[in-house]
Nucleic acid binder design. Structure first.
Length: 759
RNA sequence: GGACAAGUAGCUCAGCCGGUUAGAGCGCUUCGUUCACAUCGAAGAGGUCACAGGUUCGAAUCCUGUCUUGUCCACCA
């Protein structure tokens, strides 16, 4: 054995062997109880970052359960990451002096698909470097045909169940990128903008957006504001830049009487609060800003102007007409901007596909409160428990979910529209006022045909073959929200037991065996966007929870405590650290000394300490290999028998201590207290086993104590294996002469005497 | 504005379902070893556990308030 443990000689070799021998497959224990974790799918086009290195938590759980005899499956996969990937690709296009507008939807999709293909496999190899025992034979991709088919199927059933509808809703729209963003994606920025006090007939109101006044369909005041009681419910005559007009005054408590003059102009088509006020008071939705970021025909002579110019022009005109009372130039507020291009986000009304969340979210909450109604199964626990608050709060406030995205890169919505029916519908409502009070019937009779992906031959209503597919794609979370069950259902390695058009009735052996999964482990930052969606979608489609436990890890910040981000340029690639310290040390450093769910700072001293620990472990093995009596029969001893065999008092005591260690470690692993386990094993191995016990034994070594020393060490290797798989495997095979069962598939040591455990 | 974290040795962090002299790693000091350990071992210095109240026989640990930092969410025209 070398004097120093050299991870570079060991890691790739061992990983290859594990993988080739199929040890990552649950079939190594075909009859074991199922234990399954679905890997949160990284961006297929992405690079490894420290969030991924934290998946060490999952590998520890999987390896531990595999050793406990479970049929353990850790299923890998990658995500197409819609907006993110398309953005990266478009940046590339821009550098080449091109834009996405130069291509058709199909061409662009193909180009992005090729772009992703080119970097495919990168992330997989990086995950291998970390030693993750993922079953690569079951790997999935969110755009695999089988996955897409299942996602379509869920959508179709939701549509038929009346959970999906189309409605004109305000979306956060970036007029430059030509896409809408979810609330989560909008970034808010503090800005100083003039606050204009504008005369509205007898009233004066304050606004930062005079250019949207063409879309005003009311003026609102607080219901208890005595100053304006006399106007409530009446129409007032106002002078505007386009001449005289009449406008209604409504009372709504969303208005803050303290702000400005206590009077608000209501522009339902271009402001989220105003949209709500509009709904409460049945106000028309009058769109005056187009998707091109310009004022439309409702703006009279200002039509065609970009918003920033329009604002100046409108203000100038107002000033000429004496409509501006004053301007507060020191007003600071927060506005939504596009996180990609920094353009101000415009709330614009757009017809979208929506998912009704009322029932879905109720079930998702109940699953954690352990009070699911009949017909739905499962209970979910969060670890650490404190994250429940975030989970509940998010779900309780959740509004209907907009699942349409105006991007190319994604799963195209399987809805076709009959051109003829749509036109008929249009002419019917042509003379109606364009408002948002359209009924559900109207929305659903727009001529849409929803399928499981195949193009309908003809319109079921009028028989026309002129059908056009919606150009929108699904929100990425709509497909990844189904990840736990679609990955298991689309078991391509086996034939489906049941092919069924009924939702959730399509079973594969893997789905039957591993669903609901045991654990969903991810960063706490994904509780809302992803985890809650998986619970909602899983419960809907399968009537069961998608997982029993949610385990959350914290973020890894840079050595100065700052969040790592590409824009800051402080991202550290875990592979560099693996190169330097070894995968085992990196893994150990991430677990050691930080409680689960807490953020941590990437610390070089800690990495160095972990590296030294792997070296210490190595040298303990090396020393035992030198000192022990050779050719002893090993690997047949269980701790109870070992105790009976022991002669020396110190040996007996040490065996007892190891037994206690096994008990504690097992208990803590079951409770997800991984940092306790890491610390416990570190201290015990170094300061009890090496510093005390070995120092004691080395001067009195005989056949009996040699056997005990070696066996106890092998037990320690087992306990450490989930944390530091490579060095422990290498030491195991060295001490066993390479003939015994590989450590990865040996049995976890048992703490109790007299029971069969193998060592 | 709300929620959740965090504020403990120079640094990075454990401990916090109340209970003996508050722990680890790194760093620092002294000594030893240098044929298991690109090191290791032994010993040691170092903390008013953010602050102020309260509960208690007893609080880093529970309660209230304050301050600081971070994250997430909401958002006022």
């Amino acid at each position: 054995m070398d004097k120093v443990y050299n991870h570079k000689d060991v890691e790739d070799k061992i990983y290859k062997e594990w993988e080739e021998k199929g040890f990552f497959k649950p079939e190594v224990h075909p009859d074991g109880k199922p234990y399954c974790i679905i890997l949160p799918p990284p961006n297929a086009n992405g690079d490894l970052h420290f969030g991924h290195a934290m998946f060490t938590v999952e590998d520890i759980l999987i390896r531990y359960h595999r050793m406990k005899g479970f049929s353990a499956l850790w299923l890998p996969g990658t995500d197409h990451a819609g907006i993110e990937t398309q953005f990266v690709f478009e940046q590339k296009l821009r550098k080449e002096g091109k834009s996405r507008l130069d291509y058709s939807q199909e061409e662009l999709y193909k180009m992005i698909a090729d772009f992703v293909d080119a970097s495919k496999g990168k992330i997989q190899n990086q995950l291998r470097k970390l030693g993750f025992s993922l079953d690569w034979s079951r790997e999935k991709y969110t755009l695999d045909p089988d996955i897409v088919r299942l996602v379509y199927k869920t959508f179709k059933h939701m549509y038929e169940d009346g959970l999906v509808y189309r409605a004109k809703r305000l979306v956060n729209y970036c007029t430059k990128d030509g896409t809408s963003f979810s609330d989560l994606e909008v970034v808010y920025e503090e800005r100083k903008d003039p606050l204009y006090y504008i005369k509205y007939g007898p009233l004066t109101l304050a606004t930062t957006r005079p250019e949207t006044k063409f879309g005003d369909t009311a003026v609102a005041v607080h219901s208890k504001d005595k100053r304006y009681q006399q106007y409530v419910g009446k129409e007032i005559e106002i002078e505007t830049v386009l001449g005289k007009a009449k406008i209604k005054v409504v009372a709504d408590d969303a208005v803050d009487p303290e702000f400005g003059t206590g009077v608000v102009k209501v522009t339902p088509a271009h402001d989220f609060t105003d949209f709500d006020i509009g709904q409460r008071h049945n106000l028309p939705l009058k769109q005056v800003i187009g998707f091109d970021g310009k004022l439309n025909e409702h703006a009279g002579k200002f039509a065609g102007l970009y918003l920033t110019k329009a604002r100046l022009a409108v203000v100038e005109e107002m000033q000429k007409k004496g409509l501006i009372e004053k301007i507060d130039t020191e007003y600071v507020h927060r506005i939504g901007i596009c996180y990609k291009c920094k353009t101000v986000i415009e709330p614009l009304p757009l017809k979208q596909w929506f998912v009704k969340v009322e029932d879905l979210k109720k079930n998702a909450i109940d699953a954690v409160k352990k009070s699911l109604p009949a017909g739905r199964q499962g209970e979910i626990k969060l670890h650490p428990k404190r994250f429940e608050v975030q989970y509940f709060q998010w779900l309780e406030n959740l509004r209907d979910w907009n699942i349409s995205r105006q991007i190319v890169w994604g799963i195209r919505i399987p809805a076709w529209r009959c051109v003829r029916c749509a036109q008929n519908q249009k002419s019917k409502i042509k003379n109606q006022k364009d408002n948002n009070n359209e009924t559900m019937e109207q929305f659903n009779n727009e001529g849409w045909v929803v399928t499981e992906g195949e193009k309908p031959e003809k319109c079921p209503v009028c028989g026309s073959a002129d059908l056009k597919q919606d150009t929108d794609t699904f929100d990425t979370w709509f497909s990844s929200g189904q990840w736990p069950f679609v990955t298991l259902m689309s078991d391509s390695s086996a034939k489906f037991k049941v092919q069924s058009s009924k939702l959730g009735d399509e079973r594969s052996p893997d789905f039957e065996k591993f669903y609901p999964t045991s654990v969903m482990e991810t960063g706490y930052d994904l509780i809302k966007a992803w985890v809650s969606r998986m619970v909602m979608m899983g419960l809907y489609a399968t009537k069961k929870v998608p997982f029993y436990n949610i385990v959350l890890h914290g973020l890894v910040n840079d050595p100065y405590g700052k969040k790592m981000s590409k824009s800051k340029g402080n991202v550290i690639n875990p592979l560099e650290l693996i190169e330097q310290y070894g995968a085992d040390a990196v893994r150990f450093a991430l677990i050691y000394g930080t409680a689960l769910g807490n953020d941590q700072i990437l610390s070089y001293p800690k990495l160095e300490a972990a590296r030294k620990f792997t070296n210490k472990l190595w040298n303990i093995g090396r020393f035992i290999d030198m000192k022990r009596i050779k050719n002893q029969e090993l690997g047949i001893m269980e701790i109870g028998e070992l105790q009976k065999l022991a002669k020396h008092e110190n040996d007996k005591e040490m065996i007892k201590k190891v037994e206690e260690l096994i008990e504690q470690v097992t208990k803590d692993l079951d409770a997800y207290n991984l940092h306790f386990v890491a610390e416990n094993l570190y201290n015990f191995t170094w300061h009890t086993f090496a510093d005390k016990y070995i120092e004691d034994v080395k001067n009195r070594i005989d056949e009996n104590s040699s056997l005990i020393l070696t066996t106890l060490y092998l037990i320690l290797l087992k306990l450490l294996h989930p944390f530091m798989p490579f060095v422990t495997e290498e030491l195991w095979s060295t001490l066993q002469g390479g003939t015994d069962t590989p450590l990865i598939i040996t049995k976890w040591p048992r703490e109790s005497f007299g029971k069969r455990s193998g060592i």
